[in-house]
Design a protein around this nucleic acid. Structure first.
Lengths: 226, 226
DNA sequence: CGTGTGATTTAGGATATCCTAAATCCTGTT
DNA sequence: AACAGGATTTAGGATATCCTAAATCACACG
């Protein structure tokens, strides 16, 4: 429960590692070296080195050969960075007319340079959004986040209507395609049927029909309608 | 006349050095190691090292023991960075309600992270401003800049009216004080009289009178009215 | 219950940036 | 024209981040 350093005191790589560890932890409990390496496109050996430094700073707990977990401090830094990232994404789309597939890279750089004041002003200017353009929840200034899980479109029962709540944002081309199909947060979607053996999944989105593969359907989070 | 690298290819320190050299060159012809060091608050020995690297990249021409000058490439990078800095300052004040004494530090960090697209969108959103909140000219997208010099308030003839066109932006407290006095770009000012031996300079600014020292009056750029 | 394979760490380097201390250079003044 | 003092560069280090190659570990399977 040490006082966190000022935001500027953490380097961009440190913030990126903590964000990655946060995301991996959500799915896997502990973040393995290889998973971090893959997510950040960095050699595993480099990750080992960074993990040592993060542990020395009390941002992660490291059990040798068994991955890392964020400490409370580490989680706070991760959530602060996530808040910045997502507020920036929301601001760029709502206030500056960015396409939703162009905001990720911009936010990835700005999140390390923006002050708390800027983030708060941006958030206020677009009405304190709760989610970013891809449906990801925005942590509050106090570090709280809506961490409920969604089911994926691929898991939806046939003939059921659902609402898209979130899409994965780390591939611009994929985002553009989802946008063309109308698979954006808020859209209503019905799973018509699913071909076996990884075959196409037919959907009704708004008034149109389309078919997508299971890999794509796995990155679309939905909430089934009652 | 090599093609410049993408903006992201220059590190933040490199951009900072080039900006500093640009500003120093405007006054002095060539930028001396010590001047660069002082402006960036860095040891002269470190500047020597960076100068070597900048020269290797063709961004500056270095004559040993006689300072550096920007090459055409170096000037382009400097002006691009300056454009970013000033567009960001203008945007923060006009679109996000920042006080004019808070924008410098924020811009100093964001200028290294903002894409060309972001800068262009920001500039468009606040009406393609020609100057930043402190009156400094904003280079165009093509790298052109209004580089006319102004006379300083301290040099104004007594009893003459002038218009403030620019103030130095590198000290927030000073900026706040100038703001309180009404000495902001666009303000009309009349030099009433000047005490000798570095004594106070009495002014009429708008409807009020005030007196400032010559050091402060030296950082206020003015244009005498006909 | 040994063993191989994949995960992880260590060893040894490279780069960019900064520092202090010690040389070296330049120039204006005597 | 020599020299002192200030400016500049070199020498030697520190830190953070990344890399490849080699060693080491853990666990599941035969």
């Amino acid at each position: 429960m040490t006082a966190l350093r000022a935001p500027e005191a953490y380097t961009a790589p440190v913030e990126d590692y903590l964000k990655a560890i946060y995301e991996i932890e959500r799915g896997a409990g502990a973040a393995a070296t290889t998973d971090i390496a893959q997510r950040l496109a960095i050699a595993p050996a480099s990750v080992s080195g960074m993990i040592r430094r993060l542990a020395e700073q009390g941002l992660v707990a490291h059990e040798r050969y068994h991955g890392v977990r964020l400490t409370d401090d580490g989680r706070r830094v991760a959530l602060r960075t996530l808040r910045r990232h997502r507020v920036i994404e929301a601001y760029l789309t709502r206030a500056l007319g960015y396409a939703w597939d162009r905001v990720h890279d911009e936010a990835e750089r700005l999140e390390h340079a923006a002050s708390e004041e800027l983030i708060d002003r941006m958030a206020a200017a677009v009405g304190e959004p709760a989610v970013d353009p891809h449906g990801a929840p925005i942590p509050t200034r106090e570090g709280e986040i809506d961490d409920r899980d969604h089911s994926a479109l691929v898991e939806l029962e046939p003939r059921r209507w659902a609402r898209v709540v979130r899409v994965s944002d780390d591939d611009a081309a994929r985002l553009r395609y989802l946008g063309e199909l109308g698979l954006v947060p808020g859209a209503r979607v019905k799973l018509l049927d699913r071909a076996p053996f990884g075959g196409p999944i037919r959907l009704r989105v708004g008034g149109r029909e389309c078919a997508i593969g299971p890999a794509l359907a796995a990155v679309v989070g939905v909430e089934a309608e009652e």
